[in-house]
Design a binder for these strands. Structure first.
Length: 648
RNA sequence: GUCCCUAUAGCUCAACGGAUAGAGCACCUCUCUUCUAAAGAGGAAAUGAAGGUUCGAUUCCUUCUAGGGACGCCA
C-alpha cells in the first residue's frame, strides 16, 4: 500500500515536471493526519525554490483531479474512458479508488485519507490470504545463510546464547517471509584453549575426575553443568600457575593431534554438549540445516592463511602469522600462533569459504552470509572480513556481522570463566514457574499437562519477546523480575490476545480455516455452518475502535518487510503489541457476538443471528476483524519464533 | 593512547530528519450478573551538557562529560 501510494505521487510529480522522485510515504502516528502521509513537498521545496505549501497544494490538486475521474461507485471498466493516466496503470487506478481525499497541512504535509470501503476490502484480503498475508517477494531468489546461536561445547549455554538464537531465528524467518531462501546454521567452538582447560580439570582435578563415572549415567543437563563447572575450575587453575598453563597448552595440542590419551574423553564430553544443545534447540523451536565446527575448519583455515602468506596477504611477525589490518585502517590480528595453531581468526579463513560454498550449493543465488555475533566482535569481523576478501575476492561484500547485543547482569559481569553465568534454561524454567502460578489460578479447569504446556509456551514467549522487542543490537540489562514480563508489552500478552480471539471464533459457530487444518476434533462443539467468506458487511459503518484496529491490520505487510530489511524483529514486536492493544480496546468496548453495545445486558439485545439465520452486519464485521487479527498475530508471532496457544 | 558503541520518565525500552517524544513495569483512581480481567479506562512523570547544519533535530556534525567494548599469540 505504502509503495503504491508512493508510486502514485511519483507519477503526479512527473506530470508536474519533477521526475525521478520516489517520495517517502509513512503512516502517521495520529490518524487525524491521514492513513498515509508524505513530506515530499518539503523535501522538494529547496530544489524547486518554491514554498512547500505551494508544491503540496499542486500535488493535492493533481490527485484530486484524478480522483474526480474515478468514481468509487462505478465499476472499474467504466473509468478507463475518463482518465488516460489511470488507464495506463492499473495499480494507480486501484489506489485512486481507495483514496477518499488528500489534505495539505503546514508546513507542507500531504495527508492521504482512505475510504472506509478500502479498509473493509483489505480486511477481506487478510482472510483470503491467511498465513500468506504479510509475505512478499522482495528478496525472492536471494540465498541467505544465517549463522546464529553458536554455543561452544564444554561451556554453558547462557542467556547470551539464548538471546542470540532468538534474534537469529526471527531474522531468518523474516527473511523467509520476504521470499529469500534461507539456510539456518550455527558455528560452534569444539577445539581450542577453552576445551583444553575443561579437559585439564577432568583429568587432573581429583574431585572432578572422581565424579566423571557418576556423571556418565546422568541426564544431559547434569553432564553439561558438570562440564561448565570443570571449565570454570580449569580456567581458574590456568590463571593461577604457569605450570598449569603449559599443561593445558599440551592438552590443546593433543586434542588437535587426536592423541589417544585425551581424544576419547574429548569426543565423549563434546557429544554431551551437543546432545544437550539439541534439547535446547527443540525447546526454542530452532532447526539447523548445518552445524559448523571449529574442529572441521581449522586445518583448511591454517592452510588458507599459509597460502595467503605466500601471496603477501599475511605477514610473519614475532613468530606468529598476522594480517596487517593497520594498512587498511583497521588493526593487526594474529591468525596463526607461534605454536602453529590457527586462532579464531585463522579458523574463520576456513569457515568463510566453506559457508559460501555451501550457500552456493544449497541456493540458486548466494547473496549473503549473516553472522549473528556479539558487539565485542565488531572490530574483529572488520579485520576478518577484509582478510577473507583478499584471500577470496569473490567473498567480498558477501558477509555481514549482525550484532546481537549483550544480556548484561544488572549486578556483576557474566563470565563462564568464573562460573558466574545465568543459564539459558534456568531463565526459561524460572519464567515457567512464575507463569505456572498464573495458569493455576486462571485455568484451573485444565489438566495438569495442559497447564504445563501453556506455561512452557508462554515462558518461551515471554523470554523471546523480552529479547526481541528492544532491537537486536541494544544491550539488555537483565533482571528476572524486570526483563521477563507476562503483562503489558510481552509475549504472553500477545498469546493471550490470540487465545481470546480464537475463543470468540470458536463460540461464533463459524468455521475457521485454521480449525480444519489442525483437525476438526479439536473443537467438537463448534457447529460449522457459516464460512468466514460468507460473512457480509460490505456497507457496514465502522466505529472508531473498529476503524483503528482495521487500519492497523493493513500495515502488517509493510511492517514485515521493514523488519526484514532492517534485520530488526523489534519493529514487528512494536507493531504486534499495538495491534493487540487496539484489538483489546475494541474487545472491551464492543460485543462481537450479538452486535450489542456494552454495557447493555446481552440477553436483551437482538441475537447475532437474525431470523434469516444470517449474522447481522456488525457481528459479521467484528468476527471478520477478530479472525483477521488472530491470523496476523499468529503469523507475526511465528516470525518472532513464538508459538501461539488456542487457549490459555 | 587509538578506534568503536551507548546516554530519552523512578526502572526497562520505543520513536525512516517530521506534526502534541510513545509504551511497559512500578505508583494512585476506576471497570468482571457481559464473547478469556494474563484485560480495559484515567492520572503523574523524560531527550547527559554546550554549540552548529535545517523550514523542522531525540535523530546529522563538532566539542565536552559519563558508562561499556576492541586494540598480537583466548574464543
Amino acid at each position: 500500500m505504502k509503495n503504491q501510494i508512493a508510486a502514485l505521487i511519483a507519477d503526479v510529480l512527473k506530470d508536474l515536471d519533477v521526475p525521478g522522485i520516489t517520495p517517502e510515504v509513512t503512516v502517521p502516528e495520529d490518524s487525524g493526519h491521514g492513513d498515509y502521509t508524505t513530506n515530499v513537498a518539503m523535501i522538494l521545496a529547496k530544489t524547486l525554490k518554491k514554498p512547500p505549501m505551494e508544491i503540496a497544494l499542486q500535488v493535492k490538486e493533481a490527485i484530486t483531479r484524478q480522483l474526480s475521474l474515478v468514481s468509487h461507485k462505478k465499476p472499474i471498466q467504466n473509468i478507463h474512458k475518463g482518465s488516460q493516466k489511470a488507464s495506463q496503470k492499473s495499480t494507480s487506478l486501484y489506489i485512486l479508488q481507495a483514496i477518499d481525499r488528500v489534505d495539505v497541512t503546514p508546513p507542507g504535509f500531504l495527508n492521504i485519507f482512505l475510504i472506509e470501503a478500502s479498509l473493509i476490502s483489505q480486511l477481506q484480503q487478510v482472510l483470503k490470504a491467511k498465513e500468506a498475508y504479510g509475505t512478499s517477494q522482495i528478496k525472492v531468489g536471494e540465498g541467505i545463510m544465517v549463522e546464529y546461536g553458536d554455543p561452544n561445547t564444554h561451556k554453558a549455554f547462557h542467556i547470551g546464547h539464548l538471546r542470540n538464537i532468538t534474534i537469529g531465528e526471527s531474522v531468518a524467518r523474516l527473511l523467509e517471509a520476504a521470499g529469500a531462501e534461507v539456510i539456518h546454521t550455527s558455528y560452534q567452538g569444539d577445539v581450542g584453549m577453552h576445551i583444553a582447560k575443561c579437559l585439564y580439570a577432568l583429568l587432573n582435578i581429583e574431585a572432578i575426575y572422581h565424579e566423571l563415572d557418576h556423571v556418565r549415567t546422568a541426564h544431559d543437563k547434569a553432564k553439561v553443568d558438570f562440564l561448565g563447572g570443570a571449565y570454570a575450575a580449569g580456567s581458574s587453575k590456568f590463571d593461577e600457575s604457569e605450570e598449569v598453563k603449559k599443561e593445558v597448552a599440551g592438552i590443546n595440542k593433543k586434542i588437535y593431534a587426536k592423541d589417544p590419551q585425551v581424544y576419547p574423553l574429548y569426543q565423549e564430553s563434546r557429544q554431551w554438549s551437543l546432545d544437550y544443545f539439541e534439547g535446547v534447540y527443540t525447546r526454542v523451536g530452532t532447526v539447523y540445516k548445518r552445524n559448523y565446527f571449529e574442529g572441521e575448519v581449522y586445518e583448511t583455515g591454517k592452510h588458507n592463511v599459509l597460502e595467503g602468506l605466500k601471496k603477501g596477504i599475511f605477514e610473519e611477525s614475532e613468530g606468529a602469522i598476522i594480517f596487517p589490518g593497520e594498512k587498511f585502517g583497521l588493526h593487526n590480528r594474529v591468525f596463526i600462533t607461534k605454536e602453529g595453531n590457527p586462532t579464531y581468526e585463522g579458523k574463520d579463513m576456513g569457515l568463510g569459504p566453506l559457508q559460501y560454498h555451501d550457500l552456493a550449493k544449497w541456493t540458486k543465488h548466494p547473496v549473503l552470509v549473516i553472522r549473528v555475533v556479539g558487539p565485542e566482535q565488531a572490530g574483529y569481523f572488520q579485520v576478518v572480513f577484509e582478510a577473507q576478501s583478499r584471500l577470496f575476492p569473490e567473498l567480498r561484500d558477501k558477509f555481514y556481522h549482525l550484532i546481537a547485543g549483550w544480556v548484561k547482569l544488572k549486578h556483576g559481569k557474566m563470565s563462564s570463566r568464573s562460573g558466574n553465568v545465568v543459564l539459558g534454561e534456568w531463565l526459561l524454567d524460572e519464567a515457567k514457574k512464575a507463569i505456572l502460578k498464573i495458569v493455576k489460578k486462571n485455568a484451573s479447569n485444565y489438566t495438569e499437562s495442559e497447564q504445563n504446556k501453556i506455561a512452557e509456551k508462554a515462558a518461551v514467549a515471554a523470554v523471546k519477546y523480552a529479547f526481541l522487542k528492544v532491537g537486536p543490537t541494544s544491550e539488555i540489562a537483565f533482571d528476572l523480575k524486570e526483563s521477563v514480563n507476562f503483562q503489558g508489552d510481552s509475549g504472553p500478552y500477545l498469546q493471550y490476545t490470540y487465545a481470546r480471539a480464537r475463543s470468540v471464533l470458536r463460540k461464533s459457530q463459524i468455521s475457521n480455516p485454521n480449525d480444519q487444518k489442525e483437525g476438526k476434533d479439536k473443537n467438537p462443539h463448534t457447529t460449522l455452518d457459516i464460512e468466514i467468506s460468507d460473512l457480509r458487511f460490505d456497507s457496514y459503518h465502522l466505529n472508531p475502535e473498529e476503524r483503528a484496529a482495521a487500519r492497523l491490520l493493513t500495515h502488517f505487510p509493510d511492517v514485515v518487510a521493514e523488519a526484514g530489511s532492517r534485520l530488526s524483529p523489534g519493529v514487528l514486536c512494536t507493531y504486534l503489541f499495538k495491534l493487540a492493544q487496539s484489538y483489546n480496546l475494541f474487545y472491551a468496548k464492543h460485543t462481537i457476538l450479538g452486535g450489542a453495545e456494552k454495557p447493555s445486558a446481552i440477553s436483551h439485545q437482538p441475537s447475532a443471528k437474525a431470523e434469516s439465520g444470517k449474522l447481522n452486519a456488525a457481528s459479521s464485521f467484528r468476527l471478520a476483524l477478530t479472525a483477521a487479527t488472530a491470523q496476523i498475530l499468529k503469523t507475526g508471532l511465528y516470525l518472532l519464533g513464538i508459538e501461539t496457544l488456542e487457549q490459555m
